[in-house]
Amino acid sequence: MSGRMVAVHYIESGAGTPLVLLHAFPVDARMWNPLRGRLEEQARVITPDQRGLGESSLDGSTARGMLEAPVGKLPVDRPSVDVAAADILELLDQLELPRVVLGGCSMGGYVATAVLRAAPQRVAGLLLVDTKAPADTDEQRANRLSVATRAEEEGISGWLADSMLPNLLSASTRERRPEVVEELRALIEAQPADGVAWAQRAMAARPDSFVALRAFGGPAMVVVGAEDSITPPSAAREMVDALPRGELVELAGSGHLPSMESPEALADAVLPWLAGIEV
Rank of each mutant, 00 (worst) to 15 (best):
L271P: 09
L168I: 14
L97S: 09
G276N: 13
E247V: 09
R44G: 03
M260F: 01
P120L: 07
T231R: 07
R176C: 09
L165Q: 11
V76L: 15
A202E: 08
V111G: 08
E154W: 10
G109C: 01
A269M: 11
V123D: 08
T62N: 05
E96F: 03
A202L: 04
D93M: 04
S254M: 05
F216S: 00
P178K: 05
T62C: 11
A86V: 09
E264W: 08
L58E: 06
P232K: 13
Q42A: 07
V180W: 02
P244A: 06
P263S: 12
T131K: 00
T47V: 09
A171L: 04
L116R: 03
D130T: 08
D59W: 06
V222N: 02
K132T: 02
E179F: 07
S254H: 12
A118D: 02
G108F: 03
L145I: 14
L271T: 08
G155Y: 13
Q94C: 03
E68D: 13
E175G: 06
T149H: 12
L21M: 15
R64M: 12
A151S: 04
G65K: 10
M1S: 14
R36P: 03
A85L: 00
P178G: 12
E90R: 10
A235H: 15
S61H: 15
E139L: 08
